[in-house]
Amino acid sequence: MNTREKVLAAAEELFAEQGYDATSVQQVVARAGVTKGALYHYFSAKEDLLFEIYNSLFTEQTAGLDRIVAQHSDPATTIREIIDDLVITTAARTRAVTVFGREGSRLDAQRWQTLQAAWRRYQDRVRKVIREAQESGEFSSTTSPEVVSWAIFGFTNDIHTWYRPDGPKSAAVIAKELADFVLNGLSKKEDGK
């Protein structure tokens, strides 16, 4: 783990344990085992740490979406892979999601708007996959792409509140069940069967 990663890991742990406001830069550097100079080499302020904790996860998820969409698979495979990626990456970083959910309001307007703009682009790309499959007749158009995406994102955004790595179902199993659920709702059923 490099210095930047050590600092981020320490900040994430401390923000989760005691909250953003109660955590000092000195505590972060002590937990990371680095100097303040090393921290300030990568981050100009404590708020940068909070932003990067979530941004690093979202950057990973955006790269996953880019990779999945670039494969030009059929829509069902694409949606399944998107859900799989979202569930697994979110489950792997539940502490980061918890910290951001609890402390994200501490971000200044510019950082918040940066994340919101990236999030809207992500949602729009997923909705585009659904919309195009509905327009081509591959998916049922009973439910709008917006509602389908809200179901996916609402589920994945709340994973941090209930998922446990040692629980009865792995993230991969949960992802498969969610994808089955979503794709069943999007399937074209014939004659009400």
Rank of each mutant, 00 (worst) to 15 (best):
D108L: 03
D124C: 01
F58Y: 15
S44G: 15
D84Y: 10
Q123D: 10
R111G: 02
Y54K: 06
Q61S: 10
L86N: 13
Y122V: 00
I68G: 05
D74H: 09
G64R: 13
L115C: 10
K36F: 08
R102N: 11
G33I: 04
Y54M: 14
T89H: 14
S56L: 07
K36H: 12
G64E: 06
T62N: 12
T62A: 13
Y40E: 01
I83W: 00
R106E: 12
G33V: 05
G101M: 11
E47W: 01
Y42C: 08
I83K: 03
L65C: 09
K36V: 01
T98M: 08
V69T: 02
Y122K: 03
G101I: 05
I68H: 00
Q113K: 14
Q110Y: 13
R67M: 09
K46V: 07
L65K: 02
A118W: 03
R95H: 03
T35N: 09
T114Q: 12
E52F: 12
H72P: 05
E81K: 13
W112H: 09
A76Q: 11
G37N: 07
Q116D: 15
D84T: 13
Q71R: 09
L39Y: 09
A38V: 06
G101R: 07
A109F: 10
A96S: 10
F51A: 15
Y54I: 07
T98G: 07
A63F: 06
L49F: 01
D66L: 05
T114W: 05
K36S: 09
K46M: 05
R120H: 12
L115E: 00
R120V: 06
K46A: 05
D85G: 00
R80S: 08
I88F: 04
G104C: 06
F51D: 03
V34G: 01
H41R: 13
E52M: 14
Q61D: 08
D74R: 10
I83M: 02
R102H: 06
R121F: 09
A63Y: 07
R80D: 03
G101T: 08
D124G: 11
I83P: 04
L115W: 00
F58L: 08
H41A: 02
T62P: 08
L65M: 14
H72W: 04
I68P: 00
A91S: 08
K36C: 04
S105D: 14
D74F: 02
R67E: 12
A70I: 01
D108E: 04
T90H: 08
Y40I: 02
G37P: 09
P75Q: 04
T35W: 03
L65S: 01
A96P: 00
R95S: 11
A117R: 14
Q61F: 09
T90A: 15
R120I: 14
A91E: 06
D66S: 13
T78I: 12
Y42Q: 05
L86K: 10
T35Y: 06
A92E: 15
I79R: 03
D66P: 13
I83G: 00
A63T: 12
A117S: 15
I79N: 01
T89N: 15
I53N: 01
R95N: 09
Q113G: 12
T90I: 08
A38P: 01
R93M: 09
R95K: 15
L115R: 04
E52L: 13
T35M: 05
I88M: 13
A117I: 06
L50W: 04
H41E: 09
A117H: 13
A76H: 07
L57R: 07
Q61H: 06
K36A: 15
Y122H: 10
